[in-house]
């Protein structure tokens, strides 16, 4: 492989880590396992670096490799009764790929949207999504019922989701 091609490859690979992570996480549904699969995917991409054609876009190719890794992972973990089986993951792959491809823009939009949340709502989001605290624990700490927390969280999520979508379409 030529030096400049390899260099290009390395840059693409590292530049798209967030998007690949988003793709894998979306289908695997767990951050720890997603990190595992991302590692496997990176290794797989490395091994196949020679097949990489710099004239073609990197990301679709990388998503394809990631998809195989995710499916293998889901098959390996069949016993764990995961939500998604390989078949359903295949069905979702296209939508997930489209969203993951714009993950950086989503993240940038999200950052601004987070800034608009009230203090309490922001804390709720941080506890659940930054620090992965279980809902039960959040409810206990806040001295509220589990269902009250769920309702509150769903409302904040919807608010965030809509805000992000607005910004994305404004960009486009």
């Amino acid at each position: 492989m030529r030096e400049d091609v390899l260099e290009h490859f390395v840059r693409e690979l590292t530049g798209h880590q967030n998007r690949l992570y988003g793709y894998i996480y979306s289908l695997v549904g767990d951050h720890d396992r997603a990190a595992d699969v991302l590692q496997e995917t990176n290794l797989a991409l490395w091994r196949r670096a020679a097949e990489y054609d710099p004239a073609r876009p990197f990301l679709p190719w990388a998503f394809g490799v990631a998809r195989m890794q995710v499916l293998a992972h889901l098959r390996d973990r069949r016993r764990d009764r995961l939500l998604l089986d390989a078949e359903l993951a295949e069905l979702l792959a296209e939508d997930v790929q489209r969203e993951s491809a714009k993950l950086d823009r989503i993240q940038a939009a999200l950052r601004e949207c987070l800034g608009k949340l009230s203090e309490a709502n922001r804390e709720l989001v941080e506890r659940r999504y930054f620090r992965s605290e279980p809902l039960e624990q959040i409810a206990q700490r806040a001295g509220r019922t589990l269902s009250a927390i769920k309702v509150a969280l769903l409302r904040v999520r919807r608010q965030l989701g809509e805000c992000v979508q607005r910004r994305l379409s404004a960009d486009a």
Partner: peptide, 29 residues
């Protein structure tokens, strides 16, 4: 949940958005 995702394209799109937002939140965090 599986039944919903199998049955509806709209549900799958919703799922993809939800998950992407989760990933973005986690990365942000």
């Amino acid at each position: 949940l599986r039944a919903l995702l199998r049955a509806s394209e709209e549900a799958r799109r919703q799922f993809a958005r939800w998950q992407a937002l989760n990933a973005a939140l986690w990365l942000e965090g």
